[in-house]
Design a protein around this nucleic acid. Structure first.
Lengths: 204, 204
DNA sequence: GAGCTTTCGCTACGACCCGTAGCGTAATGC
DNA sequence: GCATTACGCTACGGGTCGTAGCGAAAGCTC
């Protein structure tokens, strides 16, 4: 969240309702217009807010969209299904459902594109979107290890590298399937994906 | 390529040099300015071409950038290394090297973002970028099957689904590693990735 | 309630980029 | 030479950006 009312502050506080309205209006505009045609003036009108109010809280289009899209990922949870493959399938299906929404499609990729040139934006994407997803990977792997489904990893540096690799493989595959190939990551696809991820290609 | 001089045509032909200059200028502008700050007027000036000439050949920023970025992928080739894992590592390293270039980073993701709302643009991305990559997957798999490294797939529909899955996993992982996680897909990473892809997570 | 502080809505503004129209000129084929 | 198309150049209306300035509103402290 960009706006944050510091604790011991005097004066009129910022309206939390305005924040919510602006972010909701941003998502609605993403659905109807997409990233490139979205304008801050239009978002302000939709939210019933003056354009200047919007600029007091967000530096620009990029930051606003990242925050608006980040809220979509709040609902991500790791189901405890009892087996690693079921855990993976469950969380991947959730992730795919979010990515299938039009406001996520156009907003997320544009934010990633811009974050390649803007370090502050990259950091914002990382903390508000990527890190939350990665924690699910860590937790799922830890569960699987305690179940004996995955081998334990004594070296913490090596464990971190493996977690990064798994994360890039899972999130990357779903994103590529949904946004580049333009096809749904449905249950059948998720089952096939999980089988390859766990067993490998050679084991068919 | 947007411009195409039909065969039996009268009048002054379009300058092929102008096409090359415009696409090169677009890539240079992507490096220096990124997607969002790139303007067509600026590209025209860099290319030593009138702005109107640019508009006669490309409908807009999106199409131009897709064509400019697509040329980067022309150099992709499948090395015949004798083993499936070496083939994969070789082609993934090439792909990673292209994605590491700044003009590819900012341009490609922005084009994908916009293609989620524009069917014509999606088709252009598909034919000029994605399909070329996918052919490498098909060919690599066919080689591996003839070597006995991968099981044959009698059902053509099932074979196509598997090829799509592999493609999304390979390209998705490299793209996510490079652009979202923001870390290099170097040789060490590629080796780990290939091992997981072929052997699976459970086999460590 | 008085006074202070900060936010809010509104209007207006210069700056920039977009995409197109119009015109004269250059380059090709017949 | 003649028709045809591409090119460079200029100019233009329209839209968006991001900011400044103002008076009013909403809190807090005393």
């Amino acid at each position: 969240m960009q706006s944050r009312t510091p604790a011991g502050r005097t004066g009129r506080p910022r309206s939390a309702a305005a924040d919510a309205a602006i972010l909701a209006a941003t998502r609605q505009a993403l659905v109807e217009l997409g990233w490139s045609r979205l304008t801050l003036g239009d978002v302000a009108t939709r939210a019933g807010v003056a354009k200047t109010t919007l600029y007091r809280r967000w530096a620009g289009k990029h930051e606003l969209v990242v925050d608006a899209v980040a809220e979509l990922f709040d609902e991500l949870e790791l189901p405890d299904s009892g087996s690693l493959s079921a855990d993976i399938e469950g969380v991947v299906l959730q992730f795919a459902a979010i990515l299938a929404r039009p406001e996520a499609k156009s907003g997320l990729m544009a934010a990633v594109a811009e974050s390649t040139r803007d370090d502050a934006l990259r950091e914002r994407v990382r903390t508000s979107i990527v890190e939350r997803q990665k924690r699910l990977v860590m937790e799922g792997r830890s569960r699987a290890q305690s179940r004996g489904e995955l081998p334990p990893e004594p070296d913490p540096a090596e464990a971190a590298r493996t977690a990064d690799l798994i994360f890039d493989m899972v999130a990357g595959a779903v994103v590529h399937r949904t946004l580049v190939s333009g096809q749904p990551a449905d249950e059948e696809w998720v089952r096939s994906f999980t089988r390859v991820l766990l067993q490998g290609l050679a084991s068919a």
